[in-house]
Structure formats: structure tokens, C-alpha cells
Design a protein around this nucleic acid. Structure first.
Length: 557
RNA sequence: UGGGGCGUGGCCAAGUGGUAAGGCGCGGGUCUUUGGCUCCCGUAUUCGAAGGUUCGAAUCCUUCCGCCCCAACCA
């Protein structure tokens, strides 16, 4: 990884300025506040790195807070996944894990205060009527007929809302701000709504739940948050955030700062759409390796280091952005190039028989585990008369600049001998089933190996190889912007986003691989053993290919 | 047509009045028993546009243009 310059962005500038000016008593305290209504994705990783990163840079802390104010969408499954993902990314909230639901009682008390002070009222209009009264972008709203209902009446109704006397939708608590505000968020926003629903933490203790706009600023204040970092779409809510703080006078005055969320091309990033993929079984769950979720990226084979590096490199600003997925792939390659041991694996096997190699003979050749890391050592790989090479590494009629095997051509088998193709065996259908070759006994690697050959192929000894399933992943969507023009991204799925190769053959050292282990399969890419791996039956996911100059060349023609 | 934001190369992104960093991508070369890696070179006479201020403007002013967000009892 690049020895990164210390991150600097407009948020850190603000925080630095605040700290130098002694605001918030010189403290810096942030929070990462996901709603537990889905799995975290790479966009959240940007926010996590920002919030934990800012706290670390300025000697402060970052809380993990689950923003669970909507019981109908939230679930403990998500809470646990969020915790696991944040930890896996390498961040630690220590003992500071909170839930907005922890504050329900305090929130309620503040709400009564607002009612008593005439800053909030119970509205008994229906949702449709409230909408009709709200006005439009260009016309002011009209006050609800209940807006000036006596404080005592509102207080009584609010208490009875809490007591469960009313069905869903019959009343809401609204802030009394300004129905004519050009900022629609200030037109008496809803603070509490009735929801007779089971909450994943408070069960049935409550049947009224605070809205985000009300709960968030107070939750921040109660935790002593100094800088409440959120995404651009909340910019319009900042006056409301400040109004809630000013009106309820909690023990701290956090300040909201907005940045542009991450977008990646060839994928979607909203939890709603990711949920649809999962629910409609278009992927195999939230941790499907094609998903941009943290869990998916992890299963795919991404490392926390590569994701953190990615987040560092994309920067933080207020401009809407669409980052090229190639940058994410680059940070993974860069990380794994340094760290991943190499191995030989034949994904689509083509049998090779070396006709002048003695039957039954087996020799072991020495292979380097990682040329980027001399400390990684070497290993032995068995070589014999019958091998497998990659189907792609043979062309009966070689294209221009094809440096691999073809009839009459010679090629080096990595760490072993130079072979020449002398014959091609086909079945009735005309499919090539086997290659006949001869080897040059004088060409063993490391000995009389000064011979220069244009191509080097990876291979595996047929009798020693480990059978494995390899899963090749490609982008989930065909288009760079799957949602372009308001189209449904689910109609843009890449039918080839997953290709299973159940007949792959690995070098024997991979036999007992543990799930989660990374390898570079030479000449092919970085792979990670999937949790589906069983003893003697490895399953590997391709996280990312190696850069492939030949692929580019041959595409050009 | 109201309000809030944003416009620097294909994609990110520095730059805060002194004469356009860096990364990815792309192209070329080097090296090579991974067509990987490394290393080298190239890739914005110009900062959405037009005026203006200034010795000097991406940075200041004016006007215009474009894009995004907001009318959930979602977050």
C-alpha cells in the first residue's frame, strides 16, 4: 500500500479549526449511526473510516450507535452483522455501543417539554391530510386545525398516545415551527408516530416511536457528540437538527456536517435495492460475493486493509461522485500482491501427456511462495507425465502474439521443464481432449534453465491434483450506471456475474485450505477459500483477476 | 417557478490571489520462468460559461448555464 499522506479533507479542516478554537471544550467525538435495517455496504465503509478516522486523528472517540427508531424495519440479525462488519474493518468502539432506543424515555421527556413550552402539538389529521396541508415546493403549507390546540390537550393526548389508547395513524406529535418555511423540513415536522409494533430491543414497551429528525440530534447530544457527520441529503435537515437542539436544550450542542456519499459504478448502493436483490433471490444472500456489502466483499476475498486504503484514496468532499470500481480492485491487488502466497491452479483443465517422460516417475520441483516476499519461502510441487494446463493456454491455430502452447510451439511449465506440443487428440465431436507433448530434460528450472521461451504456463500434476470448485465473479450489473434514467436496476443484471467451475484442479498444497485464506493463483488472479469449503473439497472465490495484458491485446485484435 | 448544495483531465481529488499536486484508468517503454509485480515516460496552456477587479484569478465580484437533494407518520 502507498504510504498514505495523512488524510486531509474539509471535514478534518473544520474539526481542526474547532479544536484549535477550543469549541466543544477541545473535545472531538463522532459516531457511526447505521439503522439496523440491512447490511453495511462499501458506502458505509467510507463513513466508518471517516468517523473513526477523524476521532483517531484528533484524539477523540467514535461511538457505534444503532439508529433503531423504526421497529417495522429493524432486526437483531442486522445489529449483529453491523457489529461484525465494523470490527472486521478494523475499528473499535470499545464500550461505546449505543442504541437510539436506549434513549426512548429521555426522548419522551424532552417531547413533553416541547409540548409544555408550546413548541410541539398533537395533530389528529391523517397522513394524507397532513400531506395535503404541507404545501408544495413553491407554495407554503397551511396550518393544521389542531395546530393551536391547548397545551394541556396536546399533553393529555400525547400521554394517551404513549399509553396505547389510539390505533396507528390517528395522531402524531408535530413540532410547531413554520408552515410557510421555504424549507419543507421546517413545516411542522413529525416528531412521534404511533406504531403498535414489536421493537427488536424494547419489545412492546412502546407504541410511539420518535422520528429520525427528532431522535438523532438528541441522541448525539446525549452521547456528547461534537461533530455529527452525515450525508448530503440531510443538509436541508440541519436547520431542524439545530432547532431540536435549541428547543430541548440537551447537555451538549453537536454540530452536523454533511459530505457526499460514495457511489460506485456497475453497482447499486441503496439498502432498499440490495434488500430487493436478496429477497428476490437474485443473489444468494447479503454476503453473496457479488454484493457491495462488507459481508459480500469479505466473502469475495477483499481484505479490510484494501477497503480502508480505498476509502483513503477516494477522499471526502461535497461533490456527488461515482468512483470507478477499478480503484477498489486496484487496492485489493496491491494489498494481496504483497501478502498472498502464490499457488498453481488450473481452472478449466486440459490434459497434457508428456510422451518422453517416464511413466510412473514423479519428481518434485521447487516453487517460490511469494516473489514479493522472500521470507515466504518455497514449497515443493509434484511433476509427472500427465498434467493439466489451462484450456485458454492452448490454441490450435494461434493468434498473433499468442505466446502460449500451440502445435509445434514450445513453452515453459513454471518451475519445471520446457515442453513442445507434438499432437492434438480430439473426440468425435472435434473437441480437443488431450495434448501430446515432449519435454526437454535439460531445461529444468534452476539448473540448465537459461533457455528463454516466450511463454510460461501454470500446471498441475494430474495424479496429485486436488479437485475443487472455483467460482468466478464478475460485475453484478451490465451497465456502468444500472439506475440510469430511473430504470429498474434489477433489469440490468449480468447473467454471467457468477460462473462455477466444479472441475478445477489445484496443486496438492492447497488440499487442506481453511476458509478465508487468500492465494494468488499464478497468472490468474487473487482467490479466497469460501466458507463452503469442506475437508478435501476446497471452494475458491475469485476476488479479482490479475491485470491481463493478453486479454487487452487479443480484444483489440 | 421555492429552498438547500455542487461544478478542476475518462473517474476520484489537491489547490484558500502568484502562474494546475497526487491516485485510478488509459497509451508507450523497461524488466520478467506469473502477458503479474517493479521502474520510466506520456496523458488539463487550463479549472461549467461569459464579463469584470488586479501587475497577476481555478481562487475575489457579477451574470448566466448545468447537475443533485427536499413535498414519508423512512433514515
Amino acid at each position: 500500500m502507498t504510504p498514505a499522506a495523512p488524510p486531509s479533507d474539509f471535514i478534518r479542516e473544520i474539526v481542526r479549526g474547532d479544536q484549535e478554537a477550543g469549541r466543544h471544550g477541545g473535545r472531538v467525538h463522532t459516531r457511526f449511526p447505521p439503522e439496523p435495517n440491512g447490511y453495511l455496504h462499501i458506502g458505509h465503509a467510507k463513513s466508518i473510516c471517516l468517523n473513526f478516522g477523524v476521532a483517531a486523528d484528533f484524539g477523540g472517540w467514535c461511538n457505534l450507535r444503532l439508529d433503531d427508531t423504526n421497529p417495522t424495519k429493524e432486526d437483531v440479525e442486522y445489529v449483529e452483522a453491523i457489529m461484525a462488519d465494523v470490527r472486521w474493518l478494523g475499528f473499535d468502539w470499545h464500550e461505546r455501543m449505543y442504541f437510539a432506543s436506549d434513549y426512548f424515555e429521555r426522548l419522551y421527556e424532552y417531547a413533553e417539554l416541547l409540548v409544555r413550552e408550546g413548541k410541539a402539538y398533537v395533530d389528529s389529521l391523517s397522513a394524507d391530510e397532513i400531506r395535503a396541508h404541507r404545501g408544495t415546493l413553491t407554495e407554503p403549507g397551511r396550518p393544521s386545525p389542531y395546530r393551536d390546540r391547548p397545551v394541556e390537550e396536546s399533553l393529555d393526548l400525547f400521554r394517551r398516545m404513549r399509553a396505547g389508547e389510539f390505533p396507528d395513524g390517528t395522531h402524531v406529535l408535530r413540532a410547531k415551527i413554520d408552515m410557510a418555511s421555504p424549507n419543507i423540513n421546517m413545516r411542522d415536522p413529525t416528531l412521534y408516530r404511533i406504531r403498535h409494533a414489536h421493537h427488536h430491543r424494547t419489545g412492546t414497551a412502546w407504541c410511539i416511536y420518535p422520528t429520525y429528525d427528532y431522535a438523532h440530534p438528541i441522541s448525539d447530544a446525549l452521547e456528547g457528540i461534537t461533530h455529527s457527520i452525515c450525508t448530503l441529503e440531510f443538509e436541508d435537515h440541519r436547520p431542524l437538527y439545530d432547532w431540536v437542539i435549541a428547543s430541548t436544550r440537551p447537555p451538549a450542542t453537536p454540530q452536523q456536517i454533511e459530505f457526499a456519499r460514495l457511489n460506485l459504478n456497475y453497482t447499486v448502493m441503496s439498502k432498499r435495492k440490495l434488500l430487493a436483490l436478496v429477497e428476490q433471490r437474485l443473489v444468494h444472500g447479503w454476503d453473496d460475493p457479488r454484493m457491495p456489502t462488507i459481508a459480500g466483499l469479505r466473502r469475495r476475498g477483499f481484505t479490510p486493509e484494501s477497503i480502508r486504503d480505498f476509502c483513503l484514496r477516494i477522499g471526502v468532499a461535497k461533490k456527488e461522485n461515482v468512483v470507478d470500481i477499478a480503484l477498489l480492485e486496484h487496492t485489493l491487488r496491491e494489498d494481496l500482491n504483497r501478502r498472498a502466497p502464490r499457488a498453481m491452479a488450473v481452472l478449466r483443465p486440459l490434459k497434457v501427456v508428456i510422451e518422453n517422460y517416464p511413466e510412473g516417475r514423479v519428481e518434485t520441483v521447487m516453487a517460490v511462495n511469494n516473489p514479493e516476499d522472500p521470507g515466504a519461502g518455497t514449497r515443493e510441487v509434484p511433476f509427472s507425465r500427465e498434467l493439466y494446463i489451462e484450456q485458454d493456454d492452448f490454441m490450435e491455430e494461434p493468434a498473433k502474439k499468442f505466446f502460449r502452447l500451440s502445435p509445434g510451439a514450445e513453452v515453459r511449465l513454471r518451475y519445471a521443464y520446457v515442453i513442445t506440443c507434438t499432437g492434438v487428440v480430439k473426440n468425435e465431436a472435434g473437441t480437443i481432449t488431450e495434448l501430446q507433448c515432449t519435454y526437454d530434460p535439460e531445461s529444468l528450472s534452476g539448473e540448465t534453465a537459461a533457455r528463454r521461451v516466450k511463454g510460461t504456463l501454470h500446471w498441475v500434476s494430474a495424479a496429485h491434483a486436488v479437485a475443487a470448485e472455483v467460482r468466478l465473479y464478475d460485475r453484478l450489473f451490465l451497465s456502468e450506471d444500472p439506475e440510469a434514467g430511473g430504470r429498474d436496476p434489477l433489469s440490468d443484471l449480468n447473467p454471467a456475474s457468477l460462473v462455477r467451475l466444479p472441475e478445477s484442479r489445484l496443486e496438492p498444497s492447497l488440499a487442506g485450505v481453511a476458509a478465508g485464506t487468500h492465494y494468488q493463483f499464478e497468472r490468474q488472479g487473487y482467490f479466497c477459500a469460501d466458507p463452503d469449503t469442506r475437508a478435501g473439497a476446497p471452494v475458491f472465490n475469485r476476488a479479482v483477476t490479475l491485470k491481463d495484458a493478453w486479454a487487452r491485446l487479443s480484444k483489440r485484435g
